[in-house]
Amino acid sequence: MSENQPLQYRIQEEISELAASVNEIVTKFRDLQNPLKESSEKVPKATKQLDKISEQTEAATHQMLDRVEKIVQQVEDSKKGLDEIKVCTKDGRTDDISALADDLIEKADITCNDAYTIIDALQFQDITSQQMNHAASLLEDIEVRLQSIMGALKGQPSDETHDEKRRDRKTRVYDPHADLFDKKTDQLAIDDMFARKG
């Protein structure tokens, strides 16, 4: 019995060390649970954002192509009008020339407005670039969390080179709610709010 006692103590000591180390592992896993959960939430968010960018870019491109098609048609009609003016000039039909010229001026105005619509639609570049920066920042955040998990699993404290990498990263400034088509508030309501204050 007395010979067994030191062995018993040793076993107890081993068990208590094992318990401490299991406890440490459990704490570590608990610490890792949050970043993992947050990362898994951010992946679908980034994917959704990228899908939105793709849809909005497509819609803006279609909008512009429709306008370009209209502009090309207007130019074709204008060319026909100019040809008619040439014929009228030859025949000396001045009244017809005046009417054709008026028609051409009207067509030029429409073309100009269509060109402005294209310019307006080109703002999609700014909006999608903000959405892409948002998606990129979500993915970068996931990378940071996954690296910290890897570090923790390897028993490393904080990775300094990783912190340096983060510092060197491009500063991403964006409006997280930037959207090309879906506006929550209309401009009149905003103007009204400012007018009431003024």
């Binding site: 909006i127 709610h177 959207d179 401009q187 400012f194 204050k197």
Partner: peptide
């Protein structure tokens, strides 16, 4: 591009004259 109430209110508070939403 931010059209939330908070942004507009903060804009007004700091002294903006008006607020246009992009696009």
């Amino acid at each position: 591009s931010e059209d939330g109430d908070d942004d507009r209110e903060r804009g007004m508070d700091v002294g903006a004259s008006s607020y246009l939403v992009k696009p």
